[in-house]
């Protein structure tokens, strides 16, 4: 191999490196948006039920919305997006890294929630649950930003801002980060939609 050929190959390898950078567009923005809308709707319904005094129904709202609406809808949207990508000749790899990250976050959140519940700490300090899940989601959003697409950094910033705002505003606003779990998904979904439209996938 002579020197000009070698230089050509080095230039080509630079392109190889560029191809392996993390993507900045998330084609699955519709899945994110659907989760955001359903979680926000769930919080709104819980709030209305709380105001009207129907407290016994509240624990059933989120499980019903998640298992009967959110999961089937997100599975349908995921399959649809995947089919569209495959029609272009690309079969996206399974993102085990993201799956492991979110399973870890969920496991830690559930352990904390169970621990606080069983110890009775939640009875007097219900807001701890909101702060724990808000903080865990902040970490998850940062990981999504690094591993998936850039709009998740904005979602992480919004979550962090809501945590700080709730701390600063006092106990009357401790519900704010919990409400923003859905809100930040909507934000990430909308920004993802904008990014995907600006940079459509290669044919």
């Amino acid at each position: 191999m002579d020197e000009p050929n070698l230089l050509n190959d080095v230039r080509f390898l630079r392109d190889v490196v560029a191809r392996t950078q993390p993507p900045d567009v998330n084609p699955y923005w519709s899945v994110t948006l659907s989760w955001g809308c359903i979680i926000t709707l769930g919080y709104a319904v819980c709030a209305l039920l709380g105001i009207s005094g129907k407290l016994t129904v509240i624990p059933w709202v989120m499980p019903i919305l998640i298992f009967l609406i959110a999961l089937p809808l997100s599975s349908y949207l995921r399959r649809k997006v995947r089919r569209n990508i495959e029609e272009r000749g690309v079969r996206p790899r399974s993102r085990k890294d993201l799956m492991v990250c979110w399973l870890s976050i969920s496991a830690v959140g559930i352990l904390w929630s169970a621990g606080l519940g069983f110890s009775g700490a939640l009875a007097g300090h219900w807001y701890l649950l909101v702060f724990i899940w808000g903080s865990l989601y902040f970490v998850g959003y940062m990981m999504n930003g690094v591993l998936l697409s850039v709009e998740w950094f904005w979602a992480a910033a919004a979550m962090l801002a809501s945590l700080i705002a709730a701390f600063a505003a006092g106990p009357r606003f401790y519900w704010l980060p919990g409400f923003w779990i859905g809100g930040t998904h909507i934000l990430a979904g909308m920004l993802g939609r904008r990014n995907a439209r600006r940079r459509p996938l290669a044919a």
């Binding site: 190889v16 392996t20 000749g89 690309v90 790899r93």
Partner: peptide, 27 residues
């Protein structure tokens, strides 16, 4: 590996996604 077409193929695939024949040919 060190043939331009084969290096191109590996470069296209190294991101981890599966690609079909037509996509590789076109790109």
């Amino acid at each position: 590996v060190l043939s331009r077409p084969r290096l191109s193929i590996l470069a296209a695939l190294v991101g981890g996604d599966s690609l079909d024949f037509t996509f590789l040919q076109k790109n």
